[in-house]
Amino acid sequence: MKTIASCVEEIIITQPFIEEALSRNIINYSALAEHIQPLIEKRLHKTVKTGAIMMALRRYSPPLHASNTQKMQRILKNLGDITVRSNLTDFTFQNSPTLIQSHAKILENITTDRSIFYAFTRGILESNIIISSSERDKITQSFTKETQLGIEENLSAISINLPHDNSKVPGLYYQLFKRLAWDGIPLHEVVSTTNEFTILVKDFLVDRAFSVIKSLKSEVSF
């Protein structure tokens, strides 16, 4: 049987920014209650007073695994080096039987030059190559037989070294994505390995994105 409290919980869970604001005590309970009142009345098929909704909001507690735990604080404070690389280009190609051969030509050219930024990801239908813009002509030449689906230039990458036990802490990526979203920073691409996390943003956003990520290491709560 649905109750006001269960409806409030369902609504908050689907809107993490509201949950974040509630946890920080920076939201107007009365205004929020009035805002979600029509949704709750629709779900319960009856009239509901805003006072009852406010009470449910004040009693709401986020799941323990999503709260600001000491382990999460430790992980964020122990984020490793943050490296920024600019002047990058992102190529998108349609997957094909010959794509790997075309890709091998690029690997031969870049293995001897460590100054070149390079990342390759393969999906079910398409693959991406993120590389220093200085290598754009080589990509074009090596992939002449492939179907290019897109290209994006003027990108910068921010790479973060993660603690080795990062995969055991729920919500780590959520904290990173949440803060970037709060600051209105769109992500062009995300690449990750076990202990390294890289985001791609447009060049004009890289300073803001770097500041946001760096601030996570010094924050006591979030």
Score class of each variant (00 low, 15 high):
1 M>G: 13
3 T>E: 05
3 T>H: 04
5 A>T: 10
6 S>G: 08
7 C>N: 13
8 V>R: 06
10 E>L: 04
12 I>E: 07
15 Q>I: 04
18 I>K: 02
19 E>V: 01
20 E>G: 02
20 E>P: 02
24 R>I: 04
24 R>W: 00
29 Y>A: 02
30 S>G: 12
31 A>W: 01
32 L>S: 03
42 K>G: 06
44 L>Y: 01
45 H>N: 15
47 T>S: 15
47 T>W: 04
50 T>I: 01
52 A>Y: 05
55 M>R: 14
55 M>G: 08
59 R>V: 00
60 Y>S: 07
60 Y>W: 15
61 S>K: 13
61 S>N: 12
62 P>F: 03
62 P>H: 06
63 P>L: 00
63 P>K: 11
64 L>C: 07
65 H>T: 14
66 A>V: 07
67 S>F: 03
67 S>R: 15
70 Q>K: 15
72 M>S: 09
75 I>V: 15
78 N>D: 13
78 N>F: 03
88 L>V: 02
89 T>E: 09
90 D>N: 14
92 T>F: 02
94 Q>V: 02
94 Q>G: 03
95 N>A: 03
96 S>F: 01
97 P>T: 02
99 L>H: 08
102 S>F: 00
102 S>Y: 06
102 S>K: 10
104 A>N: 12
111 T>K: 15
112 T>N: 13
113 D>I: 05
113 D>S: 10
114 R>L: 10
114 R>A: 12
115 S>K: 13
116 I>K: 04
116 I>M: 10
118 Y>Q: 01
118 Y>S: 05
120 F>G: 06
120 F>E: 09
121 T>D: 09
122 R>A: 14
125 L>H: 15
126 E>D: 13
127 S>V: 03
129 I>D: 01
131 I>A: 09
133 S>D: 13
135 E>H: 11
135 E>K: 15
137 D>H: 13
137 D>A: 14
138 K>Y: 08
142 S>P: 02
145 K>R: 12
145 K>L: 00
148 Q>T: 00
149 L>H: 03
151 I>P: 03
152 E>S: 13
153 E>V: 01
153 E>A: 09
159 S>A: 07
161 N>C: 04
161 N>F: 02
164 H>R: 11
165 D>Y: 08
170 P>E: 04
170 P>T: 03
170 P>A: 08
171 G>I: 07
175 Q>L: 01
177 F>W: 00
178 K>H: 12
178 K>Q: 13
178 K>F: 14
179 R>S: 12
180 L>N: 01
181 A>Y: 07
181 A>K: 15
182 W>V: 04
182 W>T: 05
188 H>S: 11
188 H>G: 02
190 V>A: 10
191 V>F: 14
191 V>Y: 11
191 V>M: 06
193 T>P: 00
195 N>T: 09
197 F>R: 03
198 T>I: 04
203 D>Q: 11
206 V>Q: 10
206 V>P: 03
207 D>S: 13
208 R>Q: 12
210 F>T: 08
211 S>D: 14
214 K>Q: 12
214 K>C: 05
215 S>A: 10
220 V>D: 15
221 S>C: 07
221 S>R: 15
